[in-house]
Amino acid sequence: MTHKVALGVEEEFHVVDLVSRRLTPQAHVVLDGLPEAGFSAELQRAVVETNSEPTTDLATLRAGLVDLRRRLIASAEPHGLGIASAGTSPLHGASGFVITADDRYQYLHDTYQFIAREQLICGAQVHVDIDDRDLAVLVAQRVEPWLPALLALSASSPYWFEADSGYASSRAVAWQRWPTAGMVGPFAGAAEYDQAVADLVTSGVIDDAGMVYFDIRLSAHVPTMELRICDACPLVDDVILLAGLFRALVVRETAAIQAGSPPRGDIRPTLLRAGHWRAARSGLEGDLISPVDGKPVPAPGLIEWLLEDLRPTLEQLDDWPTIAGLAADALARGSSAARQRAAFNKRGQLSDVVDLLLKETAGD
């Protein structure tokens, strides 16, 4: 078994009124009943975030995420509030957009205007330890071609402003409006990466390094690499699947660089950008673009290929049985986006979609 690299997860959740099933700007009410450790506010007052403790073990990570969700729900329910995990919430709130009272969030609102006002989206972010920043920059660029497959697995935001967007992940499309969102690089090392971030700050487009929103980025404060492309996932098992796959990609590409091996996936940035769009458009229910040859391939086929390609690394990490099982389950049930549409189609009610999200978020 190879060295177990630590990882952690941040999850963002929508706060909804349990009567109307609409978003409600009462995250502060939920947070008042919780400790600061592990729970925090977000830009919008209808969103709350949890932060897991770092661990090397996927079972421990899962238990931690389940506990954070349970505590969040327990704090919300006495106030008639529910917690829903998804890229977007199907029903918006009657009170409109309410920004959390905070100087940083006010800066985001004043600077980015409607992009910030419409930031009623939630993501799942995975952090993986990597202490060599030069190596991390190179690893990030080698992992990047596989990110659309992870986005497809997480796709959970078919509804945008109470209408079917036609996308599996409308959140991913909305996220791309931020000026620093999208692909990382190309960078030869940490010096170039850090200079690019410094140039963005100097330009006045962002205020600090924390406003760099690459799909995969280096933390400005701790020695971790952060996956930022994924929608929030209603089912906690899907979060564990994403975390395990991302860690395996980081570990594999780290070893490959050290061994002088070429990248597994290597296509032009224009095609990679198209691959991101393709994953957002159809999730698991359509084609993805292969990062190996740039050709379309059914999403389940590409994910199964990636899984087998990562099998040696997953086995070294002692993660293969867990990740293989979770991947099989995810492909069998389809994306959250597809499940949400199926729930809506039964009666034509978006409230039924919210009920599905509440149930899946609570899980076991």
Rank of each mutant, 00 (worst) to 15 (best):
A198I: 09
A343T: 03
Q176L: 15
G189A: 05
L23M: 12
V173S: 05
D266C: 14
P262W: 06
A188W: 08
T313E: 08
G87Q: 02
G286A: 15
D287L: 09
L34C: 08
V354E: 14
L307M: 12
M211N: 10
D110R: 15
A279N: 07
D164S: 13
L317Q: 07
G185W: 02
D57A: 07
D110I: 04
S89D: 08
A196M: 13
A41Y: 04
Y167P: 04
G96I: 06
S219Y: 02
L108Y: 02
I206T: 03
P298G: 08
D102L: 09
A63Y: 03
M1Q: 10
L153T: 00
L272M: 13
S75T: 02
K346L: 12
L331V: 01
L65N: 00
C233P: 12
L23V: 12
L108F: 10
L150E: 05
A232W: 01
Q106R: 15
H14V: 02
L284W: 02
T24Y: 10
L34S: 03
D329F: 06
D164K: 11
L91G: 05
V9M: 02
R333Y: 07
A232D: 00
D67H: 09
P298T: 11
A255Y: 05
C122S: 09
A324C: 15
V126P: 09
A168D: 05
A362N: 07
L249I: 01
I206S: 03
I323E: 03
A74T: 04
R281P: 08
T2G: 14
L200V: 14
M225N: 00
R264E: 07
Y112T: 01
V5H: 10
R278N: 06
E53D: 14
S282H: 12
L317I: 06
L306Q: 08
R117A: 12
E304P: 00
V66T: 05
A191E: 14
G82V: 04
L227E: 02
T180F: 01
R252M: 13
G82H: 02
A163V: 13
D266G: 03
V201G: 01
A196Q: 08
L310K: 01
F187T: 00
E10M: 11
P179L: 06
G80H: 08
T224S: 07
C230Y: 05
D352Q: 09
Q106S: 13
F39S: 10
Q119G: 06
N345W: 03
L7V: 06
D129F: 11
D319H: 14
A327H: 00
